[in-house]
Amino acid sequence: MKGIFALFKGLWITLKHNVKNVAHNTFTVQYPDEKRDLPPRARWALRLQRHEDGLERCIACQLCAAICPSEAIYIEGGENPLDNPVSKGERYAAVWMWDAARCIYCGFCVEACPDEVIVMSDVYELATDSREKLIWDKDRLFVPPGVQPRQAWLGYYRRAEDLDGKPLEFPARLHEKEMEYARAKEEPKKFEEKKEFMFLEGEYEELIKKENRT
């Protein structure tokens, strides 16, 4: 008798889910149409920054290429022509190549860079149909003049003042959809606990303060 009741209970549960999802699906992100915001620490494709006047920041010091554990960066330096400068230093990068297939996205190059050139952006759609296309050259790596690429927050080993005083904008939460669902069910705690890799509201600011003090 209990078993028969359980049969109907099972049917009732699936029916509830069915009806709920016909009306409104809270979980699925329809990827090419909708995109999730990445967490602040997500490190994806390298991008190279420019100065505000449009000159390239890179001075071809080769530090990033030297530290790169997987040798994904290749740089050829060149004398900076004085009449038509490309960068603000004596040298500039004549060739800057980054191999997306070799890169392990560790972020060491960002650490090593003395001139705030390299950032790890949120460009994560790297799939192509040939290996050659995975090697990015200067044209793809340098952002257009006047564009500020989104920077991955490498919080633990990067100081707030290194960001040129610009406030780092927090992207929306990865689990916003889950949170929405949890709030609707009034059990947000379950989902809060899951996000150990994320920072909660205010935690980031506190960490910055702590780091400034030390």
Binding site: T14, H17, N18, N21, V22, N25, T26, F27, T28, Q30
Partner: peptide, 10 residues
Amino acid sequence: RVAAWIQDRI
């Protein structure tokens, strides 16, 4: 579609 709905998919 029904399978997806029952499993919280689309």
